[in-house]
Amino acid sequence: MYTQADKRCALGDLISHVQRGDCVAIGGGLSWREPMAALRELIRQNIKALKLVGSAHGIDIDLLCGAGVVAVSAESYVGFEQDFGMAINYRRACEAGVVKVEDNCCYTLVQQLRAAISGLPFMPIRSVQGTDFMQLHPEFKIMVCPFTGEQLVLVPALKPDVAILHAHYADQHGNLHIEGPPVADILFAKASEKVIVTVEEIISHEVLAKKGVTIPYFYVTAISEVPYGAHPTSCYPRYAYDREHTAYYYQTAKHSANGFREDYLNPFVYDCKDNDAYIEAIGGKARLASLEQWSAGMEQWMKLYE
């Protein structure tokens, strides 16, 4: 339980809660509300050998794989959908054997988190039987239900060492407000040992309470105000997904591992001492303003996907 009155800290201090070898749950999903600024700081601090758990993800996992800080991936999907296709850095790392593949499945993950949240050693599911996930995860066990005689799969509790989230608002006590789909963020927050969060804006408790508390403060270890901290993923209603930047990202990844390092990691991660420097690197306020224009009308919005 995290009860301190003021949880605000700098981004660098926020990330120092993550340790080498940690099991990390990353919030958001696909191109929506990924804690990208926090992940870039994680790479700058060179915290390695991470085990990643999650549902459907994209550039967040791919970036960490491209930077060589991942040892195991237990995500259920890592890719760029119909936008760009397969996640290149992730693929390269998995196929080279650098990242161990322990793919999971969304409901299995949900039940494993629920076991942790409920203080139980496992949860039962009926699905997964007959698929090769049973071999991939020898820790899953079969039992016969003592009530119905049905054969069920038991999946062990999953308690990530740290959840890294990006939210719209927090108060200084650490209450969080998320707009739009929470994806697995609430489950991650309740199941993890530590919860570290970047937010678009820290506001007063009175204003936050009116918006509604999505995640109560006592789950939250520390918060850091990092405006545009989800870029290049979206944080609607504030800003849309930066497809143009993601296209550039993808091209550099596609070129080669070294090309990705030189043309993406160096200019946008290592050479940026903080998120302000990153914002300058991606084109400053003018670039951000164009992403905020999505709400001006359908044409403006569609333009962002061209």
Partner: peptide, 16 residues
Amino acid sequence: VTLKLPGGGGGCNLSC
């Protein structure tokens, strides 16, 4: 692993 595909999301559970 000769080709790592993106993964099935919730497809495994839902196929059951």
